[in-house]
Simulated assay, not measured.
Amino acid sequence: MTKLQWLLHDWGDEESVKILKRCKDAIPSREKGGKVIIIEMAIEEKKKEDDKETMETQLCCDMMVLGLFHTGKERSVEEWKKLSLDAGFTHFNINPVLGLRSLIELYP
């Protein structure tokens, strides 16, 4: 199992795919318990009136990451799914936990 926390938001999609491919190569098969765990923010694309503050905070964090790292960004659930597929993972699971953070599991 490989764990990444608050790392991939520093990188653009191309670099993130390279990092995830290396992680995939370093772990055993899914049958042998291999998986990558990522703890990052997953921006909700659907606006919820009752959760306006969360949406504003997520977008503010996205702007901050863009300003600090230029190619980095906070990603939506769909963007996380695309990254995982582009890196060669076959199964993707995401669960919101710990406030704005989500637990993202990728399986080979």
Rank of each mutant, 00 (worst) to 15 (best):
Pro96Trp: 13
Met41Val: 12
Lys52Ile: 13
Ile39Phe: 15
Ser16Lys: 06
Glu14Arg: 06
Tyr107His: 06
Asp86Thr: 13
Met63Pro: 11
Gly33Ser: 03
Val65Asp: 09
Glu45Asp: 06
Leu59His: 02
Asn93Pro: 11
Met55Phe: 14
Ile39Met: 15
Lys3Pro: 14
Ser84Arg: 08
Glu56Phe: 03
Ile39Glu: 14
Arg101Gly: 14
Lys18Tyr: 09
Met63Gln: 07
Thr57Asp: 13
Asp25Val: 15
Phe89Cys: 03
Glu40Gly: 02
Lys48Pro: 12
Lys24Trp: 05
Phe89His: 02
Leu66Pro: 05
Gly12Arg: 01
Glu53Tyr: 13
Asp51Gly: 12
Glu56His: 03
Lys35Arg: 12
Trp80Leu: 01
Lys52Asp: 09
Glu15Ile: 10
Lys46Gln: 14
Met41Arg: 08
Phe92Leu: 05
Glu31Leu: 03
Asp10Met: 07
Asp62Ala: 00
Gly67Phe: 12
Lys18Ile: 10
Arg30Asn: 12
Ala26Ile: 06
Gly67Ile: 11
His9Ala: 02
Phe69Arg: 02
Ser76Gln: 05
Ile94Ala: 06
Ile39Asn: 14
Val65Ile: 08
Lys73Ser: 06
Gln58Asp: 09
Ile43Ala: 00
Glu78Asp: 09
Lys47Ala: 05
Leu100Asn: 00
Ile38Gln: 08
Arg22Asp: 07
Cys61Ser: 04
Gly88Met: 00
Val77Gln: 15
Phe89Pro: 12
Ala87Ile: 00
Val77His: 15
Leu85Gln: 13
Glu78Met: 11
Glu44Tyr: 13
Lys82Val: 12
Cys60Lys: 14
Pro28Asn: 01
Glu49Asn: 12
Gln5Tyr: 13
Gly67Arg: 15
Glu44Gly: 10
Val36Gly: 00
Thr2Gly: 11
Leu98Trp: 07
Ile104His: 11
Lys73Met: 05
Asp50Arg: 12
Gly67Leu: 13
Leu106Phe: 07
Val36Asn: 02
Lys82Trp: 12
Gly33Phe: 14
Thr90Ile: 11
Cys23Leu: 08
Met1Ser: 10
